[in-house]
Design a protein around this nucleic acid. Sequence first.
DNA 1: AAGGCAGAAAGTGTATGCAATTGCCCTTCG
DNA 2: CGAAGGGCAATTGCATACACTTTCTGCCTT
Lengths: 235, 235
Amino acid sequence: MSGKRGLIRSGTTVDQMVRAIGDRIVTGFLRPGEKLDEASLAARFDVSRTPVREALGHLSAMGLVERRPNRGAIVAVVTQEHLASMFESMAELEAICARFSAERMTSIERRALEIEHQGSARLVQLGAEEDYEYFNTEFHSRLYRGAHNTHIYEMTVMTRGRLAPFRRAQFMLPGRLAKSWQEHDAIVTAIMRGDGNAAGKAAKDHVSIVSEASAVFAVGEQTKDASTTKPRVAT
Amino acid sequence: MSGKRGLIRSGTTVDQMVRAIGDRIVTGFLRPGEKLDEASLAARFDVSRTPVREALGHLSAMGLVERRPNRGAIVAVVTQEHLASMFESMAELEAICARFSAERMTSIERRALEIEHQGSARLVQLGAEEDYEYFNTEFHSRLYRGAHNTHIYEMTVMTRGRLAPFRRAQFMLPGRLAKSWQEHDAIVTAIMRGDGNAAGKAAKDHVSIVSEASAVFAVGEQTKDASTTKPRVAT
DNA sequence: AAGGCAGAAAGTGTATGCAATTGCCCTTCG
DNA sequence: CGAAGGGCAATTGCATACACTTTCTGCCTT
C-alpha cells in the first residue's frame, strides 16, 4: 500500500512488527493455532510483506510462532507438557544462576543485591504490586548477570521471556508478595554466605512455587489436535 | 541472474543458504569477524538477496553471525570468554539431563542405553574413532531425550551444535577413547541405580574434561577489534 | 597542516512483482 | 453414492527495483 505508516513507535520496521505481532500473541489477542497470513498482517500494519516475513522468522526463532514450509505460519501452540518443561527448565536455570552468583559475584554485586533486596521490603508492606513486580524482575536479572556466564544468561533471559505471558497474574494471589520476598531473602542470605548449593536450592524452590501458582492460569488445550501431544513430563 | 542454480541439494533456497554459509563458518572457511556482504553472497551462490537475508537472520538466531542494524552482518566472533561460558553451560545442561534421565527414563530407555553403551566397548578396543564418535553423539542424545523435558532438550541440542566446531579434534588425543568410555560407564551405572545426583555429577565431570581437552584447539583472538570484548567469566 | 563538513559511493532496509507450490473444489468414473 | 483425479484459486517463496542510512573520500576552512 501507500507511503507512511501510522502509529507504532521507533526502531526498524521489522522490530516494530516483531513487537506488534509478539505483543498480540503474548496478550492472547492472537490465539494459539491461529493462522498468520502474511498479506493480511502486512495490510493490517500498512507495511509490505517483506518485514512481516522477517518478523515471523524472528518470532519463530523465539518460539512464539510455528512455521510450516510453503504452508504459512501459525501462533505457536504451547502444550501443557511444553509449558511444564519450560517452567522446570526455568527452575533449573535459576538454580544454576543462583549457585554461580553465590560463588562468583563481586563484593560490589553482592552489596547492590542486598541493598535492593532490603529496600524492596517496603514495597511488600505497602502492597505495591506494580513496583514490586518491577523490582522482582530486576532482582532476578541481577542473579542472571551475577552468574558471570553469558550463555547461561542468554538461555535464562530467553526462557523467562517465553514464560512471561504465563507468569502475569502470579502476584494477584493473596500473600504472594510477602512470600516472594521471604524466598528472595533465603536466596540472598545463601549468596551472602557464599553457599552455592543452598542458593541454588532456594532459587529452585522459589521458581517452582511460582510455576505452581501460575499453572492455574495456564489454559488447557483449546485446539482440536490434542492427538499430537505426546504425554511425558512427570514433574 | 539467470535461472537454475547448480549443485547444492534439496530443501528450500533459504535452507540451502543456511547450510552453505553455516558450513563455511564452522569449517573456518569464513573467519570470525569477516564481513558478510549480502550482494556478494547472493552472487556467489547465484540467488537473490532475499533468501540470503533470511538465512543470515537464521544464522544470527543460531549465534553463528552477528547483525548490526544498517551496518551489515559479520561472522560471529566467539571470544574465549563466551566459549568458556558455553562449555560450562554444556556441562550444567548435561548434568541436568543425566540427573533427570536417572529419575525418569523408562525401563525401555534404560535398557537401550545400557545395551548400546556395552556394545560400544568393542569400538574402543578397535580404536575406531569414526564409529565411536557416531556412537558418542547417539549416547548423549539418549541422555537429552531421556530427561523427558522438551525445552531442556532444545537448549542442550542448540548449545551442542554451537560447540560442534570446537569439539572436532577431541578424540585425536591418545587414550581419550577409553577414558570417554569409562566416563560414560560411570554415567550409565548411576542412571541404572536411579541415582540422579551421581549421574549429574558424572556427566558434568565428563563434559568438563572434554572441554579442557578442546580448549587446546580454541584459537585465541585473531581479529583486531579485541576491544569490544567485555571481560567476565572467572571459571 | 589538521579538522570537519559536504557529496558521492556502497550497502542495508523496504516495496512490489512474478513464479511455484499447496490446498480446495468440482468433475468424472467405478 | 463414494473416491480419485485434475484444474483453479490462494498463499508462500524468490527476484528485482527503489529508498534511506552509513561511510569513505576529497576539498575547504581555520
